[in-house]
Design a protein around this nucleic acid. Structure first.
Lengths: 124, 124
DNA sequence: CTCACTGTATTAGTTAACTAATACAATGAT
DNA sequence: ATCATTGTATTAGTTAACTAATACAGTGAG
């Protein structure tokens, strides 16, 4: 299946986010090998150069590393992965609180809104 | 002060969001007149054409309307404004739950994360 | 009437993102 | 040794977003 890509932000940014997410979720386990650039690009329905750029970005941050001719791998450093995950949690939560706050919601009201939407989607 | 603009998404989209937000928050009250395009553009530190595009978008959705030579106004239809606000709340909450879910968080864990970040920022 | 102010339209130019099509070098299996 | 596979680099072309600089038309106050 093609990846969920939004047309209103740079593709390579979204690719970085999605790969980061897959690593945090354990879909690409620590030390594990990723599919080749060309295959990832095909999978995401994206030009290989774009995927290459996304991967290079994640490599810069240390989450991935390359063995020149044998493939690209997830870091074995589980602490780093945990740190990325924590960062994402904080960012998402902070952004959410910020957006709701700007809409005039108080903290208790926010909790209420979250709970009620959870109730609605209990089945998932 | 210049508006909070992110460089990784189209400016006019962000302008639309921010104006929408100001309307929902009552900063631009129902039926009220907005500042002229040129002034809004100056305020946001953006080219007038870009601001014009954003405003045209919001007009298309019905949230704003124009009296050709005397200015641009917020709709008097308070139900529409309430509807927009509800939509935003739902979208933000849904997105947040989705992101946290992908990171492997259960519903109780999400509530916990929100509460704890609220505690941290009680002062705001 | 005149003039400043309103929204709108047009034309041109810049830049970044993305696609496309290759080419190269290193490795490892056969 | 050969050859397919790996990541990487290069060059070119397209498109959308944004800026820039004007020009136009209607309105309302003086």
């Amino acid at each position: 299946m093609p990846w969920e890509l939004d047309s209103d932000r740079p593709i390579y940014t979204q690719l970085m986010e999605q790969i980061e997410l897959k690593v945090c979720a354990g879909l690409y386990p620590p030390g594990g090998r990723l599919p080749p650039v060309r295959e990832l690009a095909r999978e995401a329905a994206v030009n290989p150069n774009t995927m290459q750029r996304a991967l290079a970005g994640l490599e810069e941050s240390g989450l991935l590393y390359t063995r020149r001719t044998s493939g690209r791998f997830v870091t074995e450093n589980q602490d780093m992965i945990r740190a990325v995950k924590s960062r994402l949690v904080r960012e998402h939560t902070r952004d959410f609180l910020n957006k709701m706050g700007r809409l005039g919601f108080t903290h208790p009201e926010i909790l209420e809104a979250v709970s009620s939407l959870m109730e609605e989607n209990k089945n998932e």
